[in-house]
């Protein structure tokens, strides 16, 4: 293997690993979007104390935050096929299930995990908006959903964004557990490569570099978004 930390060798590792960055980003972004949607629905159910569904939403948040994400992922990966088969019970559906790529289960498991945390972030964000804002919206005759989407959400999102960015960075690194159910992403590829070449330090240095770069890029994007969303808190006039 030659000298320690040979640049040519590092470059070779980089060229190999960089191909897995899009998979990691795809997993994280896809999961984040689905999680946001899930958390928004959960939040609305809880906020309005919808009978039964509101309680179920509470239970979901409680249970999914209480599990290591890895266990949640295993439960989804091994549990969902059995659950689906139990409902349909035909050999044909079993065949179909085998064709679902593991990455779909990974997104599903990670979404359940992240969605629960986001739901708590959203709950806090809603509490940060003064009750007077809702009252004013209702007093001019807005419906609840008009008040929520036009007045409350834009203000709550300013509060939520830094926390969501935090959660996203967590998720970006958390995608590495998808390797446990055979999804080849950045961490998985690095592990295999390191073992194959018996070059642990080199491979993980490059992997760390790739995680750093990706995370920092997203951090910048989050800061930009935060700036744009908080337009009404700045002194900017037309």
């Amino acid at each position: 293997m030659g000298e320690f930390l040979n640049p040519a060798f590092l470059l070779e590792i980089f060229n190999y690993l960089v191909r897995y960055v899009p998979i990691t980003i795809g997993l994280a972004v896809g999961t984040m979007l689905l999680s946001c949607l899930l958390a928004l629905i959960i939040t609305i159910l809880r906020y309005n104390k919808v009978p039964l569904l509101g309680k179920l939403a509470d239970l979901y948040v409680l249970l999914c935050r209480a599990l290591p994400s890895m266990i949640l992922l295993y439960l989804v990966f091994f549990g969902i096929p059995i659950l689906l088969m139990a409902f349909s019970g035909t050999a044909k559906s079993a065949m179909l299930l085998r064709n679902i790529p593991p990455i779909a289960f990974a997104v599903c498991g990670l979404t359940l995990h992240t969605g629960a945390y986001l739901a708590e972030i959203f709950r806090g964000a809603l509490q940060s908006v003064n009750i007077g804002q809702t009252e004013a919206a209702l007093s001019i005759g807005m419906t609840w959903s008009q008040a929520f989407f036009k007045v409350i959400l834009p203000q709550a999102s300013v509060f939520a964004l830094p926390l969501m960015a935090n959660q996203f960075l967590n998720l970006l690194k958390g995608t590495s557990i998808a390797f446990m159910i055979s999804v080849m992403e950045l961490f998985g590829a690095a592990s295999v490569l390191a073992a194959d070449n018996n070059a642990y330090l080199e491979v993980y240095i490059v992997a760390a570099g790739l995680y750093w770069t990706t995370s920092i890029c997203f951090e910048k994007i989050a800061l930009r978004l935060e700036y744009n969303l908080s337009y009404f808190k700045r002194g900017a006039n037309k």
Partner: peptide, 15 residues
Amino acid sequence: RRNTAMVFQNYNLFM
């Protein structure tokens, strides 16, 4: 509510 309007002590303008 569509036939009434309210002016609040703390203004409650949409921020």
